[in-house]
Nucleic acid binder design. Sequence first.
DNA 1: TTGAAAGCGGTACCAG
DNA 2: CTGGTACCGCTTTCAA
Lengths: 340, 340
Amino acid sequence: MAGVATSIDDVARAAGVSTATVSRALRGLPHVTPETRELVRRTASRLGYVPSPSAAALASGRTRTVGLVAPAISRWFFATAFEGAEHALRAADFDALLYSIPDTRQPRARFDPAVLRRRVDAVIVSMFLGPDEVEGLRSLGLPVVFVSVRQPGFAHVGIDDDAAADQATRHLIGLGHRVIGHIGGAKRDDTPYSPTARRRAGWRRTLADAGLEHGDDLDEAGDFTAESGGRAAAALLDRRRDLTALFVASDEMAMGAIQAVRGRGLVIGRDISVIGVDGHNLGGLMGLTTIAQPSYGQGARAARFLLDALGGDYDPAAAIFFETTLVERESTGPAPLRRR
Amino acid sequence: MAGVATSIDDVARAAGVSTATVSRALRGLPHVTPETRELVRRTASRLGYVPSPSAAALASGRTRTVGLVAPAISRWFFATAFEGAEHALRAADFDALLYSIPDTRQPRARFDPAVLRRRVDAVIVSMFLGPDEVEGLRSLGLPVVFVSVRQPGFAHVGIDDDAAADQATRHLIGLGHRVIGHIGGAKRDDTPYSPTARRRAGWRRTLADAGLEHGDDLDEAGDFTAESGGRAAAALLDRRRDLTALFVASDEMAMGAIQAVRGRGLVIGRDISVIGVDGHNLGGLMGLTTIAQPSYGQGARAARFLLDALGGDYDPAAAIFFETTLVERESTGPAPLRRR
DNA sequence: TTGAAAGCGGTACCAG
DNA sequence: CTGGTACCGCTTTCAA
């Protein structure tokens, strides 16, 4: 029975009221007697009436849809954060529209925020955007929140990346390590507010404060895949035979690094300590010590923030920070007594 | 400049043509001279015109949107498949609407496909649905394709799960293993066409054909998380000290199983062999042998199938199968000579 | 509290 | 090839 869809007029006719009343009754608006409302509700459900989102959007100017923008939903952080966002949106009867903008190619395809116009009421972005993209986004005039990445002029949900890096680095220093390498995101793509930049800066500064070496020689770049983490670790191990620990900016890269270290016959947590960032669900399998962040929660919080913003006022200066937690596992241990 | 959005009428006026012509010109419809089309295009882009999807959907009855339904996008297979689908849809200028229906609680919240009515033109489903849900989906009268899960009466994109299980099990038998356990999805939720059921059946049948034991005693259920894989493996190891190999229905569970095995001081690939299914991107890190399936490709293919279906005829009986590949790594090895 | 009616911004049919 | 114009289905004043 893929019958003709019933419209609001059908319901109105069947219930013997006007379409305006049906609309009001079904949306829970005031100025409808309980009896009328009940009658309309029953009629609607009897007829299997489902309102047309397009018509409602066209008439009201509100789409009840939020755009989710990220470079790749297959990456753990984005997938988890977006799951949180989707659940929060669904609970408020909002839709989640997916936009994954591959950023693997350099330069990546430009993302034109104009496609979001009239399509969404608000936007969650979790990637670095270029100046023109940011401008396009701003000109939409919609509430926007950046998750993980920070963008001046827009609300933000994330963790304190400097602090996370500091926490991780101090953990290693506390274990007696003195030559501590870093594997992070691309160096040249660094923007002052990206997690990549903040984590790298945090690592550098904490080492500097401790009077330890923190130059480029100990700093490698990956692309947040496990494979790139492995390559970076290999390069670092080759270059610095005195290296005993690694602070890696993501768990996936950290896991790749662990594999590379093992591939050289070294023992993780004894010869080389590795600490990541994320709290990836598979990190436990490799005994990965990490600075865990609540990714699902960040996505959910971002969604709720936007939902609130749509109701009242959008504060572009809002910044919501989540706590990170040191999860100690076997990949970190006391610094070895002698150099390798 | 979050100025007033320009509408098709603005463009028409500015270009000195009718709205009908603008509509035709911009959509690449025939019966427009190249000059007019160019004029309209330029005017539109000069004015920064972006058509309203709601208005277009309302007028045409087509939303240019496809619904993506799965239990959790944070799980690797779904995230990857949906990324493939999203890319294929985006390339055709279609939107991807996310629906994640948590299935962790038993019984899970019912999913009412009616919410999709008038909201999408087609649907990709990657989860098991109950009879009423299937009926609701069918009554939508939309092209639907099931990915991974099979549902009679609907098109399907997936792998041959029986064959995959056979391939995995035979690999183990070929290595000399004689007591081969299985860790799959929930037993009672089994439906004849779920990957869970097919993989379990394939394992059983291949062992039966080889004259090997294949009873319930060697068969454990998990929920596709690494943790559940670990628990199941532990139970199996406790129960059967003669067990030397495990066929696990997903890589995440397989990784959990590997950890559990190691936790008992046993050596993977020597004392106990483990083979999974998926081709998870982190499987290589743990040396996991697996039957790899192209998840991104399946999602992309499903999307393209629907795009075609929207153009021409939808064949609910279509079935598209992808090849699986045995990826040999260190988690499988020759059966040990003596029992543990 | 309820109804009438004017849009919202396109699409597509029918003329010309 | 181009223009005029009924809708599409709902929301939202404005009156009653």
